[in-house]
């Protein structure tokens, strides 16, 4: 198996599915990048390079550069999804959700239920999340907690290159709208990734470290912090089990509860928000369904209830990181 980056894994997933199914189209700002310019047409290949090269194989008819007009991008994607295409619409930064929420929230998410099961909306919104890019308050948020709270949406958070490919292929083949959130600081991370297509079903958590002393639930980039802390604590014979839900909707609560039943302790680390975070949601579910398994209070490691600050010293303090995670684990052992 070859070692590939998260970026390349995503690119392969898109290429596979576009080859396999002529109804798959990509749309977004600078997904090729260069239309109407005086240089190369594939100059960007996506703002962060994920869709690079696809226009050469699939053409501008299927790799569609759009004007900067997110509400029309998302609306068009919802509309073409309900009429037979399988669009992968790119929202450059998840922060821009602010200008295009309606087609996602009131349209795509609701069609299937609201139309009595008659509609299918096989739409994928690919977007980027994450602080740590020094990009300040409007380009650094991780609003997957918002998407997770919306019935009708599936919400996917790949934490590594292998999962990224399998989850994106699943997302494209899925008949429901899927919000696929890529962490900006993971694009250059690498993993063993098969050349062929494969799917990772939604609602199946991955256990990235096994241990009997404490369960850590982490998503996206936070999984790397959790693994790092688990490896470090092993030297002290503290065995941390790390659970990466991979999708927050559907959520594999069974695996989380199974782990907590074994360890009796739960810490969650989550970049989304301080209030109403995914971590808080999972904590509530565990408290509801597995209260008697708990030997200690649940701990949450979250960002503060502030916008993402610009200055590096502040942004670094904002991000829930390994040091705070380790302290939280120790506090309940």
């Amino acid at each position: 198996m070859a070692t590939k980056s998260y970026r390349q894994a995503l690119n392969e997933a898109l290429a596979h599915e576009m080859r396999r199914d002529p109804d798959v189209v990509i749309m977004g700002e600078d997904v090729a990048g260069g239309a109407g310019g005086t240089g190369e047409v594939d100059a960007y290949g996506g703002p962060l390079g994920v869709t690079k090269g696809l226009i050469h194989e699939f053409g501008a008819g299927r790799v569609i550069d759009t004007p900067i007009t997110e509400s029309a991008i998302m609306g068009m994607a919802a509309g073409c999804a309900m009429t037979g295409l399988r669009p992968v619409a790119e929202l450059m930064f998840a922060d821009f959700l602010g200008v295009c929420l309606d087609p996602i929230y009131n349209q795509a998410a609701k069609f299937r239920y609201m139309f009595g099961g008659k509609a299918r909306t096989p739409l994928v919104v690919r977007t980027t999340i994450g602080a740590g890019f020094r990009a300040a308050a409007q380009h650094s948020q991780s609003p997957y907690h918002l998407f997770t709270s919306i019935p009708g949406l599936k919400v996917v958070l790949p934490s590594n290159a292998y999962d990224a490919k399998g989850l994106l292929i699943q997302a494209i083949r899925d008949d429901d709208p899927v919000i696929f959130l890529e962490h900006k600081l993971l694009y250059d991370t690498v993993a063993e990734v098969p050349d062929e297509a494969y799917v990772i079903p939604f609602g199946e958590a991955a256990i990235t470290r096994t241990g009997k002393d404490v369960t850590v639930v982490a998503m996206s980039r936070m999984v790397h912090f959790a693994n790092e802390v688990a490896d470090r604590l092993l030297a002290e014979r503290i065995a941390v089990e790390v659970v990466d839900p991979r999708t927050t909707s559907p959520l594999d609560l069974d695996t989380i509860i199974e782990s907590v039943s074994k360890t009796g302790r739960l810490v969650l680390i989550d970049e989304s928000a301080n209030r109403c975070s995914v971590a808080a949601d999972i904590a509530a579910l565990v408290a509801e369904h597995a209260f008697t398994a708990l030997k200690a209070p649940i701990r949450l490691v979250l960002p503060p209830h502030t916008p993402v600050p610009f200055a590096p010293i502040l942004e670094d303090a904002y991000i829930p990181g390994p040091a705070r995670l380790e302290a939280a684990i120790r506090s309940i052992l």
Binding site: D30, G33, G34, A35, G36, G37, Y44, D65, P67
Partner: peptide
């Protein structure tokens, strides 16, 4: 003339 990498002649209808 440009919005990021996309020319205005393309993106402004």
């Amino acid at each position: 003339g440009y919005g990021e990498a996309t020319g205005a002649s393309y993106a402004v209808g």
